[in-house]
Design a protein around this nucleic acid. Structure first.
Lengths: 148, 148
DNA sequence: TATTGTTATACTCTATAACTATA
DNA sequence: TATAGTTATAGAGTATAACAATA
C-alpha cells in the first residue's frame, strides 16, 4: 500500500504525452499560422483582453518578445492594441473579430483530427481515455504546484 | 453503440496533453541543454547509429538543419560522425560515451519530477493513468497513420 | 542521372540591455 | 525611483537553393 510509483509509468507517460503532443501539432493544419501565433491568439481567446506584461507571462516569453509577436499579429489584423484606461503607460491587447474567427477555425480543425483518431480506437480504449482526462488534469496541477 | 465521440473528449484531451507537455518541458531541468539538443541525443539513444537523412526525418527537420545541429553536438563532444562502410556518400552519427551519460542523467532527472507528481495523486488517479498509457499509445498510432 | 550530405543565406522566435513615458 | 512597454541587437533553430561527392 506504499505510494511508490513504478518508474516505468512515469517514463511511459512522459513518452506518450510528448509524442502525442508533437503528433497533434504536426497533424494540425495550422498552415499559414506559426506555433507562436496560434498559441498567442489562443491565449487571448481564453483569457480576454490583457496587458502586455500578463500576455508575456502567460506565453512564458519576455516583454520584448511579446511586443514583437503582438506587432506581427496586429499587422495581420488578428489582434489590436488599445490604451489601458487605468494606466497610461500600459496597453490592452485583444483579438479583433478576424482573430476570433481564426481561433475558432483553428480549434475545430484540430479537434477534427483528434476526433477521427478517437473514433478509430476500440470502445474500451476510448472509455479509458475519457476516464483519464480528470487524472491528467490532476497530474498537471501537481506539476504546476511544483513550478512555484 | 454508435462510435460517435463526444467532441468534449477530444477538446479536453487535447488541452490536457498540450498543457502537460508544456509543463513537463518547463519542469525539466535540462539546463545547459536546448530542447533541440536533448531531443536529438534522445533519438540517437533510442534508435542507435543512423545516417544523417534518417536522423533528419526522425527529428522532423531538413537535412541542412540536421547537419548544423549535429555539428554543434559533435563540438560539445556528445556525438560523433563516422563513414558509412556501405556508401561512401553517407555518414553514420552516433552518441559518444559522454553523450550516453548525458542522456541517462537527463532522463532520470526528468522522470524524477513526474514521479513525484504521480506520487502526490490519489491512488485511484494513478491507477487510471497507468491504465491509460496503452490507450494513449493506440491513439498516437491512429494519429500517425493519418500522417501518411 | 539520382542521392547523400554540406555550404550559403535568410526568416522566425527568443533573449538581454538600453531607452521612453508614466506612476 | 519604479514600472509598462518599446527599440536595438544578438543567438538558436529552422528553411530553401545551390553545390560536391558518390552511387
Amino acid at each position: 500500500m506504499s505510494p511508490t510509483i513504478d518508474p516505468t509509468t512515469a517514463t511511459a507517460l512522459r513518452a506518450a504525452v510528448t509524442r502525442l503532443y508533437l503528433s497533434l501539432r504536426r497533424n494540425s493544419p495550422s498552415s499559414e499560422m506559426t506555433a507562436a501565433h496560434s498559441s498567442a491568439i489562443g491565449t487571448l481567446t481564453d483569457h480576454g483582453p490583457m496587458r502586455m506584461g500578463e500576455f508575456a507571462e502567460r506565453e512564458s516569453i519576455r516583454m520584448p518578445s511579446a511586443t514583437a509577436l503582438i506587432d506581427k499579429l496586429v499587422h495581420e489584423g488578428l489582434v489590436q492594441r488599445r490604451p489601458d484606461p487605468t494606466d497610461r503607460r500600459a496597453v490592452l491587447i485583444e483579438l479583433t473579430p478576424d482573430g476570433r474567427r481564426t481561433v475558432d477555425e483553428l480549434r475545430s480543425r484540430r479537434d477534427e483530427v483528434l476526433t477521427t483518431a478517437l473514433e478509430r480506437l476500440e470502445p474500451a480504449e476510448r472509455t479509458t481515455l475519457e476516464a483519464a482526462v480528470p487524472a491528467l488534469t490532476a497530474l498537471l496541477k501537481q506539476l504546476e504546484n511544483h513550478d512555484e
